[in-house]
Design a protein around this nucleic acid. Sequence first.
RNA 1: GCUCUCGUGGCUCAGUGGUAGAGUACUUCCUUGGUAAGGAAGGGGUCGCGAGUUCAAUUCUCGCCGAGAGCUCCA
Length: 584
Amino acid sequence: MAKYDLDTLRHSTAHLMAQAIMELYPDDKVQLGIGPTIENGFYYDIDMNKKLSDEDLKIIEDKMKEIIKRASPVVRHEVSRGEAIEIFQQRGQALKCELIRDIPEDEVISYYTQGDTFFDLCTGPHVEKTSEINPFFKLLHTAGAYWRGDQNRPMLQRIYAACFGTKEELREHLTMLEEAKKRDHRKLGKELELFIFDPVAPASPFFMPKGAMVYNSLVDFMRRIYKIYDYKEVITPQVLDVDLWHTSGHYDKYKENMYFTQIDEREFALKPMNCPCHMLMFSHHRYSYRDLPLRFADFGRLHRYEKSGVVAGLTRVRTFCQDDAHIFISAAGIQDEIRTLMDMFFFGYEHFGFKKIKIGFSTRPEMRVGSDLAWDQAESALKAALDASGREYFINEGDGAFYGPKIDIQVSDAIGRYHQLGTIQLDFQLPERFDLKFTNVNGELERPVVIHRALLGSLERFIGVYLEHVGGAFPFWLAPEQAIIIPVKNELHLEAAMAFEKKLKKLGFRVRVDDRNESMGLKTRQAQTGKIPFMLVLGDKEIDEKTISVRKYGEQKSEVMTQSALVSSFETLDLEKIPVALRG
RNA sequence: GCUCUCGUGGCUCAGUGGUAGAGUACUUCCUUGGUAAGGAAGGGGUCGCGAGUUCAAUUCUCGCCGAGAGCUCCA
């Protein structure tokens, strides 16, 4: 049993790093901000004149190890507020003084010293001497971070570090980071020729033929799900009069993030979301309770002017497509619909092989619209539906949208990272703004509630997440190229290869003959690095016996099977593109 | 938007105050091959864009654009 828990060790290591920096750079006005522990280690926010580089991190690490050997005692002091401010002021630690001032009046202030050079405000606990700190840490990188997370305050230098209780855990974590780098969807997207970016359209992907194949397969998959769950797809305009965005409220709240265009002296905006279009469509028709829930699905292209610093690969882009839908429903129907949605979402995620799924329930935020009564109803309906689903969820107090509470769904990828995908949001504000009504069972006009929901989130983001999840190796039904056929000798076997290709193509499979004048070694290598699910080799033997040599992606060996057996196994695999409930 | 880093053939990257190189990809030829790179030749770059310093800038300085790591934000 270790003497200290991991959190204490990490925290003490953070102090150790701060001390190392103070000792190494005495003339750079080092001021300590905060240095909390985080999931895999810790960070420390530091203000200093010198800009730290990656080389400096190595020097700091060495210094830290030296201080460990020194075995300096770590001592806790408890003083009054005034004394604490004086002590930290003397040492030029203005940031710490600010923190002390924010501590409630009556509390005793604790701080720690380590040897003679180091002072830090902290409640502890800590190790008793620096030699008790283990060396299983690594300083990873520096980045800017606003003091106290406020973009109007100065930017400090944040140093991130990994820190663990054992050497193995540290190594495992560093290996995971390496693995994450290899799986980076931006790298894979380029290597597998899925998409490109160009400065002419910042943060906007161009999907190459293979990427478009994946994109369209995902849309196709969603359309099939929509058949089961009774969604009606609609198609809506890209460019709409700003009046619409005034009505919806988006103009006031999000105009900084919208694209505008003027023509015939009218101002238009490129749509950043589909909802107002769907509200408009609902209002153009007098619907009855018999029509509800009415589900409008839309794969419309959206444009949002995201700030330059926030865009990243496919995960945050300026043009994207959601698997968007809006459900118009009576307040009484919410709970059932949410339950149905949860079924549908989990069905979808499991289909993609996401096993660990986290559900977050976000409640009313401080800045909100709508009456408390309406919020009470909406929250309790969501909660009841979640409880009824029997799935675990956690509550994000105050994290809801300004127009209603929401459910967010995160999935864990193959290397344990969570990504937000789906969202289900209740909205009683847009129906109000668009004055939506339906005729209820008593013949009276009633205001519907709207549910915004997306399962994949955005196609772009989902492709990024999924690429990293599968490491670029798509399952058969999603692979842009499902099989590659290699003739052993072009002169002798090309004809048979092309005949087989034609046969598979007629059955709807995506196959290609590699007819280049290259060695089998090279073709094999490229079939593997291209992560094509099946490599099929045809030579004399196979042609004579109507068989084919089959090597699956990731396997070292090939097996020989009859051509008809291969075809039927392709047919079975390809069924995965069709949700179970729709299979004949 | 803010802080830091980066930007050299399609891709991955060397390199230099005297206007550029490798590997790979591409084209052609040779090779007729049995499961992760057979051989050769060839074409391809105003070194992100603009200004400044200099006899001379891809190299140094500034500005802009784009990308990355974070922060703030994310309808």
